[in-house]
Amino acid sequence: MGWIGEQIDSVKSMQFRQLLTQAVSLGMIVTSALIIWKGLMCITGSESPVVVVLSGSMEPGFKRGDILFLHMSKEPIRAGEIVVFNVDGREIPIVHRVIKVHEREGSGEVDVLTKGDNNFGDDRLLYAEGQMWLQRHHIMGRAVGFLPYVGWVTIIMTEQPIIKYLLIGALGLLVITSKE
């Protein structure tokens, strides 16, 4: 009880000016996180520069909970690259490997077929009904870097929202009660 009492006392004894400082520092934390995210978007040219692997379809290369760094350049898409794509009518983007490429003469329009390394067949079953190929606009980026396990943090937080709120609450309390 002693610790909690102390914390409550420290909140009570806070001056208005101190409160303002805390609010500003909290704002700084939030905005700097936002700046980093938006800055990454600018540098990588991809609308989501970092994705978390949610399924085992690329095992043993990528496991659930791994993080991928994406990059989207003007360069043509080639077989073997791991791309992240959105299919019409599906909310969650998919990370799979390109196995076939047919690129038009001149216009540079491209038809792409993908497959998960761990899946038996190609991805036509995952595409929208009747869709045979992915086009350029379906593709959000190609994977260039890899970091294991880190994505578990977000998976746990989305699946167990209580932990998320506990964490946010604890961090908020820490910011409010910390002196200096």
């Binding site: 043993p60 490429v101 690129e103 001149g106 390394d117």
Partner: peptide, 29 residues
């Protein structure tokens, strides 16, 4: 961690400037 290796047939046609078709692949750990 692993090497993903695949063999692709690559060719150009009057319709398509670039075609890549994967014929075989394997994962080496």
């Amino acid at each position: 961690k692993q090497v993903f290796v695949f063999l692709a047939a690559e060719y150009g046609t009057p319709k398509n400037a670039m075609n890549q078709v994967s014929l075989w692949d394997g994962i080496i750990q």
